[in-house]
Design a protein around this nucleic acid. Structure first.
Lengths: 336, 336
DNA sequence: GAATCCTATGCAATCGATTGCGTAAGTATA
DNA sequence: TATACTTACGCAATCGATTGCATAGGATTC
C-alpha cells in the first residue's frame, strides 16, 4: 500500500525531533549540526522516505514543471509524426530534467487561447514552451497579462514582448529558393503547412522574396498548403504537376515532406534531381540517408531545444524575454 | 502579477459566504441550491477565479498526471527520432487529455530503476506508461512493491503481474521472416536495437524461429544490433554485406531503419527488391510513400496508445493488470 | 557569579481547497 | 404549540512540507 509511506512527521517521531528539524536537516540547513543531519538523513533512507513533491511544490508555490505545447490545426486533429519534433522534444526534456524540472506535454488547438489559462492560471506549470507560433499578437499580449513565462519556437517577432528561438524562416525560405534558382530552376513549387502556423507562412514569404530576387514569375498554382505530413505531401505532388507540368523544383517545408515528395516523384518515373530538384527544411537524421541524399536547410534542432529552456530560465530569474535567431545552414547534397 | 490571483476565500468574502460553500457550489454539490450555485459561479467567472490544481491535487492526494517514459540505452544518450514514438505519444496524450489528466514525459536510462521511485514515490504521477520494456522481472516486482500502477508497451510477459499492450514481437518477427522465405530468400539479415530493449530481442527470437521453420541456416554474421536510428541502420548495411556478400533480404526492426537501409542499398546500386528484399516493422506513415513502397508489419500504433491509457485507468479503478496482445498485419507492398 | 551571546531546536502559521460533522433556520407533522 | 425533520451553510481539521520567530540551555566573557 502506498498509504503507509512515511511522512516527515514519521521521520521526526522516529528520530525524536520535530518535523522542522527533519526538514532542515534534509535540506542541508546550516543551523543543524552536521552529525544530526547525517543521522536524520540515514534514518530517512532506512525508512525509505521521499519528499512528497506535491506538498513541497504547493508550499513553495511553484510547480517545478514546464509545459511543451504542440499546436495543431483545428480541422485535422492529425498526429504529429515529424521526427523533427521528437528530436527537439528529446533535447527539451533532457535539458529540463538536468535542472530538476518535469516536462508536461500537450497538443493544443492553434486557434484557441484558453489553454494558456489552463496551464498558467491553474498553476500547473511555471512556464510554457510553444512549438511553432500559433498565436497572434493579441494572444501574446494575453499571455503577458497573465505574467506568464514562455518561449516560442519561431523567428523574431517585431514589437512583441516575447521570447523566441528559431532560425529566421523568411531567410531560410529565401535561401532555399535562391539555391534552386542558381541551379537553373524556374518553375519552383512550394509545399507548406497551414498558414495559421506562422513559421510555414514566413517560409512562404521567403519563397516569394527569393523568386522575386531571382527574377522568376510567381503564381499561386505553384503553392500548396497541407498539413505537415508525409501523406499530404505525397498527395500534393501530382496535384502540383497537374497545375504546372513544367515544374522543375519543389521546396517542401520539412524534410519529412520532402522525402515523401522525392519518393512519389521517383514512383512516377521522374528523376530527382534530373527532372525535378527537391529541397527540404530542417536536416533531420534521415535526410542524409536517402537516395538521392536530400539537399536541405539545417536548423540546429537540439541546440534550439536547449536554448528554449535556457531562455525560459532566464525569465524565471527576472531577465526580460530575449529573441534568439539561430544560424541556419544550406546543406547541399544530391537532390538539388 | 500572478500574486493577486483570487483564491477560494476571496470569492467567499465577495459572495458573503464561507469558503466551503464556494467549494461546494463550484463542484456542483447538491446541498447548495441551484440559485446560489449560479450566483457563485458567476462571481467566480467575473473575478477570473480558477482552482489551484496544485492545492486541489495535494488535498485530494492525487496527481492527476501520468508519466510516459522512454527508456534509452546507457552508452548512447541519443535522441529518439523514430516517428513511431511521436505518433504513439500523440495518441497517448490525447487520450489522457480527454480524461482530464496531464502528460508528463521523460527519457530514462534503461538499466537503472531509480526513476520509478522518482516518479511514484515522489508522488509526481498517478501512473506510468512505459514505452518498450527495459525492465526485468525484478524491476517489475519492485514497481509492484511500491503499489504502482503501470502499463508497459511490450508483448505478453509470462508469470509477471504487470499490464502490457503490444503485438507479440516473437510472432511478428517470425511472420516477417516467413514472408521473406516464401519469396525464395535464403540469406536473411536481421537489424535490431540493443538487446536490453526486450521487444527487439523478441523479434530476434522470432527471426530465429522463422528461419528454423523455413529450414534456413542461421549464423550470427547475419544479425546486427544497433541503436534505433536511421544512421545506425545505414552503417549496418555495408557491414552486413561484407560479412555475407550473398545477402538477399534484410528484416529491420523498425520502418525508420528499413527505409534508411533501402536508401543505402539503392545508393550502392543494389536493386530493391530485385537484388535484396527489405522488410520493416510498424508501418509508419512514411512507409507507404517510399519507392519502392515498404513491405512491413503493421502495429496499430494509435489504438495501442489509447489502449495503454485505458488499461492504466482500469487499474486506477481497482481492476487487476491485463495483458493485451494487439493484432498485427503483414502489409505486403513492393520492397519484399 | 552574572551578563551576554550562540547554537540547536521547537512552535505554530502557512500554502488553497475539500469535507465530515454540527447546527441555525425554516418547514412539516402531530 | 411542541416535536421532528429538512435544508443550507459554517466550523475546523486536513493533506505534507517549509520557515519566521521564539527560546532553552550551554558556552563565553568580564
Amino acid at each position: 500500500m502506498s498509504s503507509n509511506r512515511p511522512t516527515i512527521s514519521d521521520i521526526a517521531r522516529a528520530a525524536g525531533v520535530s518535523p522542522s528539524t527533519v526538514s532542515r536537516a534534509l535540506n542541508n540547513h546550516p543551523t543543524i549540526p552536521e552529525t544530526t543531519r547525517e543521522q536524520i538523513r540515514l534514518l530517512a533512507r532506512q525508512m525509505n522516505y521521499r519528499v512528497d513533491t506535491r506538498a513541497r511544490n504547493f508550499r513553495l508555490q511553484r510547480s517545478q514543471t514546464v509545459a511543451t505545447l504542440f499546436p495543431f490545426q483545428g480541422a485535422s486533429r492529425r498526429q504529429i509524426s515529424d521526427p523533427f519534433y521528437l528530436e527537439m522534444l528529446g533535447a527539451i526534456t533532457d535539458e529540463l530534467d538536468k535542472r530538476g524540472y518535469d516536462s508536461l506535454i500537450a497538443r493544443v488547438p492553434a486557434e484557441s487561447t484558453d489553454w494558456c489559462e489552463r496551464y498558467i492560471l491553474d498553476k500547473r506549470v511555471d512556464g510554457i514552451l510553444m512549438i511553432d507560433r500559433a498565436l497572434d499578437d493579441a494572444g501574446i499580449r494575453a499571455l503577458n497579462a497573465l505574467d506568464a513565462r514562455f518561449v516560442i519556437w519561431c523567428g523574431p517577432v517585431e514589437g512583441a514582448a516575447c521570447a523566441t528561438v528559431a532560425c529566421d524562416s523568411r531567410v531560410t525560405g529565401r535561401d532555399a529558393v535562391l539555391h534552386l534558382a542558381a541551379q537553373g530552376r524556374h518553375k519552383i513549387g512550394f509545399i507548406g503547412g497551414f498558414q495559421r502556423m506562422v513559421e510555414t507562412d514566413l517560409r512562404r514569404q521567403g519563397y516569394l522574396q527569393g523568386m522575386h530576387e531571382a527574377g522568376l514569375p510567381v503564381n499561386s498554382d505553384l503553392m500548396l498548403f497541407t498539413d505537415f505530413s508525409a501523406e499530404a505531401a505525397a498527395h500534393a505532388v501530382p496535384l502540383l504537376l497537374k497545375r504546372e507540368p513544367k515544374l522543375d523544383a519543389i521546396f517542401a517545408c520539412s524534410d519529412f515532406m520532402a522525402i515523401a515528395c522525392m519518393q512519389v516523384l521517383q514512383g512516377m518515373g521522374r528523376a530527382v534531381p534530373g527532372d525535378i530538384s527537391v529541397m527540404g527544411h530542417d536536416d533531420i537524421a534521415l535526410a542524409s540517408q536517402t537516395s538521392p541524399r536530400l539537399t536541405t536547410i539545417r536548423q540546429p534542432i537540439q541546440q534550439g531545444g536547449r536554448l528554449m529552456v535556457q531562455s525560459l530560465f532566464e525569465q524565471f530569474e527576472g531577465a526580460p524575454p530575449r529573441q534568439i535567431v539561430l544560424p541556419h545552414e544550406l546543406i547541399v547534397r544530391e537532390s538539388a
